[in-house]
């Protein structure tokens, strides 16, 4: 055989992903019709298993567009963004961006945000296990010291700001509440997802709380984070936002800054 193993693998990877059998038929024994059928078994395995992996990650997107449409989307996605890793937990991370650019989805403006919501759930589900600070920790440290601290966020915490009712659409499919027909699609929704133990929790928050948690996540001292947030969101209710955060395990550490 003259072709090296690298030549074979390069040709097979291209030929299988991009439906070009002529690039690989020469490597195998058999007549062309037979080879076409046999090569298809491998190609089908690749596309079928990856579409399944994508459907596992984005079940609500699949429900919204229907299985047949989703399979076609998945095939286009796999050709454009094939996995780079064997662990499927890393696959499909570009799907929300892909949906926003895919021509067949241009009428479904809310679809990329529903996908972002599902991706955030997956990331929260697989994030590292770290114990959260309890609400008592907030009491014990006292307001003054808390203000001059940097708070570290739980590794599972995901911040989602949507121009659409992405959370309600997801909840409608998962729990039946609210009913899909009752949702105002253009209802801008902010959510924080977190998995303090083994179940992912979804917190509906207002834009001001979302901005505060975002500022904390960027490493700002709490006092500075509050000041910055108040400039854009004078309605920020600081005690309520902190109670929500400590009550739901958002924070895992308090680093008191020395001035």
């Amino acid at each position: 055989m003259s072709a090296s193993l690298a030549d074979i693998q390069s040709a097979m990877a291209k030929g299988l992903l991009h439906h070009k059998n002529e690039e690989l038929e020469g490597f195998f024994n058999g007549d062309q019709e037979d080879l076409t059928a046999r090569i298809s078994v491998y190609r089908n395995n690749i596309f079928y298993s990856l579409a399944n992996a994508l459907a596992d990650l984005y079940p609500v997107v699949q429900k919204l567009v229907g299985e047949e449409f989703f399979r076609a989307l998945a095939n286009r996605y796999v050709r454009k963004h094939p996995p780079a890793q064997a662990a499927m937990v890393y696959f499909g991370q570009d799907f929300p961006v892909f949906l926003a650019q895919d021509k067949a989805c241009t009428d479904l403006l809310y679809l990329p945000d529903v996908a972002r919501f599902e991706l955030a759930r997956q990331r929260a589900y697989h994030a590292a296990d770290v114990e959260s600070l309890s609400p008592q920790a907030m009491q014990e440290i006292g307001v003054e010291r808390l203000l001059s601290s940097c708070l570290s966020l739980h590794p599972s915490l995901q911040i989602l700001d949507s121009k659409w009712a992405a959370r309600s659409i997801w909840q409608a499919h998962k729990t039946g509440q609210p009913r899909l027909e009752d949702i105002d699609l253009q209802d801008s929704q902010q959510s924080i997802l977190i998995r303090p133990a083994y179940e992912v929790m979804v917190c509906a928050v207002d834009a001001a709380t979302l901005a505060l948690i975002s500022a904390i996540s960027e490493g700002a001292k709490l006092e500075a984070a509050i000041e910055n947030t108040l400039e854009q969101h004078p309605e920020l209710d600081v005690p309520q936002a902190l109670a929500l955060g400590f009550g739901n395990g958002f924070f895992t550490g308090i680093d008191i800054q020395q001035d």
Partner: peptide, 14 residues
């Protein structure tokens, strides 16, 4: 896998 692409199937080799 070949060149950073993982094909998610057990492919044959000579």
């Amino acid at each position: 896998h070949w060149n950073q692409t993982f094909l998610n199937d057990l492919l044959p080799m000579p």
